[in-house]
Design a protein around this nucleic acid. Structure first.
Lengths: 350, 350
DNA sequence: ATGAAAGCGCTAACAT
DNA sequence: ATGTTAGCGCTTTCAT
């Protein structure tokens, strides 16, 4: 160590250094610093002074190896650039940071093979638990982790057959409210641009759409329902298709933020005016919604809360591994702006 | 271990298990699996078979402790919800994932105290290196890490006095191009909505603005320059102020994506039409730019590449710690859409 | 080329 | 209440 100092390379102090300076054993240092009750006030003070003087920082890796657990939590998102997932990331990070846990972020990019690699990474990293939004059909990889006693929390998208804590949002209800809003504005031909039906979120949103139509006595017309990927250009193409229909829709509900951008782009390229010729509601209320022209009516999803709740659920389970699984569903809200016209204005035009 | 199996709790296999099954020593297992040249083909094969049969995954924590380094890289961003930083995150994650490194993400939320906590976390986590975009004025905390031989890469925002690798974008040049574009469209009163001048990015953008005006022989009018935080509502207020000027601007350049949204919101609330009454250019080309009405002319910043390049720089330095610091500046591009009108149309109107 | 054994820094079982 | 010591799973000398 002395020769290393001579090379001007700083070396982090260890428990042994603190113990020596304080004149106690390493065990006492460990106990004093971890707030164990079985250490006298005087020694605790001496240890803390010594620790401070050396600016000692415990080596987490060594602690992790010894205690067989880490203070890191893994997060798997299907698309880190999607603002909804970004909000989830922020919520998760916020709660974890406050609890002195760190966040290992992985992005599956909606690719199953890549998601499996994310899982491998997180397992190798030895994370204490994982929050995930999966694009996988088969949950066997997650089941393996579960068998290894690694707590899991599924967010937004959920998969049957995996007994884990979940945090979802009231997607069906949010969609129902939005479509009911369009119905109230006297729309009869309401289109739906939805994501892949293999995802629970897309199925829920479809359910909300159908129930709103049913409640209004309106038929579900297959030509008005478009299923595409959750990306911008898919919805762009879907909207183009809808606009070319012999009898095009007078309103459209788009089931995700990026898809809404694609749909808007297609409408702006047409001669149609929003809301005069077509009403638009999007799922997800994003930063840009108020800056659009006209400002967008949207179903707000509490992304931050989803992430924060998931992190809390995970931390709770870390303390009580045997607790029965919990399923939390958060509310959505319809934010009415101008993209459907005002109720009064529309009723006159209808 | 046997009694644990009886409790139906799976236990991860270790080198010892693989060694026993293959009939070799743990040292050989380690060597065979890490691709050391000094192990015979036959043994290597036996070890790999045994490893596969047990589906052995090396415990990274133990390896980290022994080798005194981790396969994790820390990332500090000032605002994870800002799409520009989200792109950086994705770029970084992409490169790290391919190199079998994991990413520990921390969000400083533009709060200096919180950024220091992020640093503590990353240090405790023992990350192999850190990519960061700092909101700190004083770089002493980073200097400490540097003294500890932890490689650092500064992205986007850079700070004098810290000898680290940097990845920036040609902000001044991008701004200059954008403002020159407005000049060419015969604008004389071109406003600037900028971020806090304490940040290198804001200073660079100011420099580009001033140089474009100077090149056109236009005066720099202080009433046309607004400095606010990098957030949406700051720019909203700034734009309101500009619009209330006795002699308001005919064009505005806004220096970040979220700020552009705020400025647009203010304009939409006024009777002014874009581009007829006011031209708008934003810094950062975001997903929503094409979906605005009219589509937004913007300076595109390669966020993904910034993150990816930073990660590569870090990985390189991990292999060559003594290499002199490198400073990479990536190009910006002006994406002309409709928010300034067409050059022809404008020249007629001017 | 392979094995035996030490030890990374910490915590926890055990001893006092 | 405090100290002694073993050992987490791995890599890496040091022998052979």
């Amino acid at each position: 160590m002395d020769y290393m100092r001579s090379l001007h390379v700083k070396v982090e102090p260890t428990v042994a250094d603190v113990a020596e300076l304080a004149g106690v054993s390493t065990a006492t240092v460990s106990r004093a610093l971890s707030g164990s009750a079985t250490v006298s006030e005087s020694l605790r003070k001496r240890v803390q002074d010594a620790s401070r003087k050396l600016s000692y920082k415990p080596n987490r890796i060594a602690r992790n190896l010894r205690t067989r657990q880490t203070r890191a939590v893994g997060l798997i998102v299907p698309d880190i650039e999607n603002p909804f997932y970004t909000s989830i990331v922020r919520g998760t990070e916020d709660v974890l940071q406050a609890a002195d846990y760190s966040l290992v972020l992985t992005n599956s990019n909606e690719e199953p093979a890549r998601e499996r690699r994310c899982l491998d990474t997180l397992r190798a990293e030895g994370v204490a638990g994982i929050v995930f939004s999966s694009c996988l059909q088969q949950m066997t990889d997650y089941q393996e982790l579960l068998d290894l006693q690694v707590p899991l929390v599924a967010v937004s998208r959920i998969s049957a057959g995996l007994n884990v804590d979940t945090v979802t949002v009231a997607e069906a209800e949010g969609t129902r409210l939005a479509v009911a809003h369009l119905v109230k504005l006297r729309h009869k031909r309401i289109a739906l641009i939805n994501g892949p039906i293999s995802l629970s979120t897309a199925r829920e949103r479809l359910r909300g759409y159908e129930s709103a139509l049913a409640a209004a006595g309106l038929p579900v017309r297959t030509e008005l329902m478009q299923f595409t990927d959750f990306r911008q250009m898919g919805a762009y193409a879907a909207m183009k298709t809808l606009l070319q229909l012999p009898n095009p829709p007078t309103a459209v509900f788009v089931t995700s933020n990026l898809m809404t951008l694609g749909a808007l782009q297609a409408i702006h390229e047409s001669p149609l005016d929003i809301p005069r010729d077509i009403a638009v509601i999007g799922f997800d209320d994003m930063a840009w919604a108020s800056s659009l022209k006209p400002p967008l009516t949207a179903v707000a999803q509490p992304g931050f809360d989803v992430g924060a709740t998931a992190a809390r659920l995970l931390l709770e389970r870390l303390n009580a591994p045997a607790r029965p699984t919990r399923h939390i569903m958060l509310d959505t809200r319809l934010i009415v702006r101008a993209s459907c016209g005002s109720p009064a204005g529309k009723s006159a035009a209808a």
